[in-house]
């Protein structure tokens, strides 16, 4: 009995640790965003006498004082919109292509399957910096620098291997006979995919959609190189432009915290939806998978 009690205490402490580890950084970033600059400079671990919304107002463009650091603050809102316009196509097109590839890999056997799958997955190993200059040169030649199209294309290549892998595992768990029934009932293979497989795989496909969206929403490096400083600048480069570490001129961390806090609203909402689906994902071993 005593061992049981000890175990319970241990589990309770572990739960507390996991909770704090996860939530504490979020909490203090939000805390900082409601402090005035002078208050924050005296230490973050204290009560806030007069919580201020100044930083948020400034980001929304409501504050009187024009941005103190090169007018970068008002680019946050634009970056938010741009990121949406880039992330949605990436999520939609990426999920569509990966659904086809995942279906082919997860359901069928064909010559050189393992090799082709490895080839696809290995492209994920490629560090983005390694292909930065070629991309930049190529896109400049065809006029895609400073254009969301180039960024969307880049993100698609980055995310499709991962999505294909995730969906492949999901498709492999679907009942084969339902698919066969649809073939008998008059569906071509592509119709089976559309009318039967995709509806049945909706949780997995939703998860893939969210993974793709988050990837595009969060990415920084290609954002800087391909659209940084242009009117298509996405959110991560826009945030970095007001970071106290990298901004040109004075930028307070409290303002940066407020902007960061706003930027995570869409990811957090998606993650909360996602967690219902991610537990149902079946990540398969690409070496030993055999239909």
């Amino acid at each position: 009995m005593k061992r049981d009690a000890n175990l319970k205490l241990f589990v309770a402490l572990s739960v507390l640790f996991v909770f704090l580890w996860t939530i504490v950084p979020f909490f203090w970033m939000l805390w900082a965003s409601f402090m005035t600059d002078s208050e924050l400079s005296t230490g973050i671990v204290q009560g806030i006498d007069d919580p201020t919304l100044d930083h948020y107002n400034r980001i929304f463009g409501h504050a009187d004082e024009e941005a103190i650091h090169g007018g970068q603050t008002k680019l946050i809102g634009q970056g938010f919109l741009n990121s949406l316009l880039v992330s949605l196509p990436v999520a939609i097109i990426g999920t569509a292509i990966a659904t086809l590839a995942g279906y082919a890999f997860g359901r069928f056997n064909f010559p050189a399957k393992t090799g082709l799958l490895f080839g696809l997955l290995l492209t994920r190993v490629l560090p983005p910096v390694a292909i930065l200059i070629p991309y930049f040169t190529m896109f400049r030649t065809v006029g895609l620098v400073g254009d969301p199209g180039g960024l969307i294309l880049t993100y698609l290549t980055g995310i499709i291997p991962l999505l294909s892998w995730v969906l492949m595992g999901y498709f492999a768990t679907l009942p084969l006979e339902v698919e066969r029934a649809a073939r008998i009932d008059g569906c071509s293979r592509l119709k089976v995919l559309w009318y039967v497989i995709i509806p049945m795989a909706a949780p997995g496909i939703s998860a893939a959609f969210i993974i793709a969206f988050l990837f595009a929403w969060n990415e920084l490096l290609f954002g800087i190189i391909l659209v940084g400083g242009t009117k298509w600048q996405t959110l991560s480069p826009a945030l970095l432009a007001i970071s106290p570490l990298t901004a040109v001129g004075y930028s307070p961390i409290a303002l940066f915290s407020a902007a960061s806090a706003l930027s995570i609203a869409p990811p957090l909402i998606l993650a909360l939806i996602f967690q219902r689906y991610i537990t149902r994902l079946n990540i398969v071993d690409p070496v030993t998978v055999r239909e």
Partner: peptide, 8 residues
């Protein structure tokens, strides 16, 4: 089919 295989 053996598993009946209705469209869920």
């Amino acid at each position: 089919f053996q598993s009946i295989a209705l469209y869920p």
